[in-house]
Amino acid sequence: METGEIIIRLVLIVVIFLISLVVAMYSTYAERKIAAFFQDRVGPNRAGPAGIFQPLADGAKMFLKEEIIPTNSSKFLFIVGPSLAIMTACIGSAVIPWGQQIQIGGKLYDLQVTDINVGLLYIFGVVSLGVYGIMIGGWASNNKYSLLGAIRAASQNISYEIAMGLSIIALLMVRNTLSLKEIAEQQHGWHWNVLYQPLGFILFIVCAFAETNRSPFDLPECETELVGGYHTEYSSMKLGFYLFAEYINMFVSSAVMVTLYWGSYNYPGMDWVAAHLGTVAAPLIGTVVVFAKIFLFIFFFMWVRWTIPRFRYDQLMDLGWKGLIPLAIANIIGTGLWITFVK
């Protein structure tokens, strides 16, 4: 790899990192505003015009609050928990393609940090690591509510990971690659995977809700039963990290869904745009399209949160094991038959 490419990669890493943080920050603001809209309230409106500086005020509050580490907790692991949570949330975005190749000074550069040929499995690895932050934090707090929250998080993640993996297998059978870059390229124009794998997409999005611990699957922090769930004992920025990690996870999982199922940077009429705007502007429009789709998904996450009530624990397990997994297996068989006899 030459110097120019390394610099581009470094810039890309920093930019993606900053974008994830800013999107996560303003997701909290968006969530409050959307909640307010759904409940016919005004929402945050004091800090700045229309409350636009509310996330900054929240951040300052989080940083300045007193930091409490419980006496009987396992101190090192108590700090490791939130650190792991935010770290695993941030590294998932490394394999996501944010746009087409862009031409600068006669050279083509990928708008992707790295294109490993097991990119999709890498995302799964990161997702499965995400639960450690919650489990370690919940256990180290030495609090029954925290421990119960952590245990719920672990069993929920493991159960839904299976259905998620199975829903992806059908997609891989159609697309024959694990590289997210190639999956994005294959969905040129309007050939989005959701048209070929509608059931797979529905399974995937349900599992994505469960993996990010978003409502209606937010049982690990169910306040009616568990006070605050796994972060009951946390205060100050450590609590902030847990909450922040959830929003970053939401951003990354939206990006994954857009890449896998909703055509990534592809949109109908992109060839016409590419022919008329040249090799710099057209990929940038593609990037704008990616982010527009991601924001739509983030909105969808919030929409569901303020519409559907939380599941009961046995309903959650029933849905995962008796509903999603058999459906995912049926989807694989159906896709296999379709490839063999129709395609």
């Binding site: 499965s128 690591l129 639960v131 450690y132 489990m135 256990w139 245990i151 069993s155 993640n157």
Partner: peptide, 12 residues
């Protein structure tokens, strides 16, 4: 991601 999470789960 899976087996050791289950170990941890049981130990807790």
């Amino acid at each position: 991601g899976a087996i050791l999470v289950l170990f941890l789960y049981t130990l807790m």
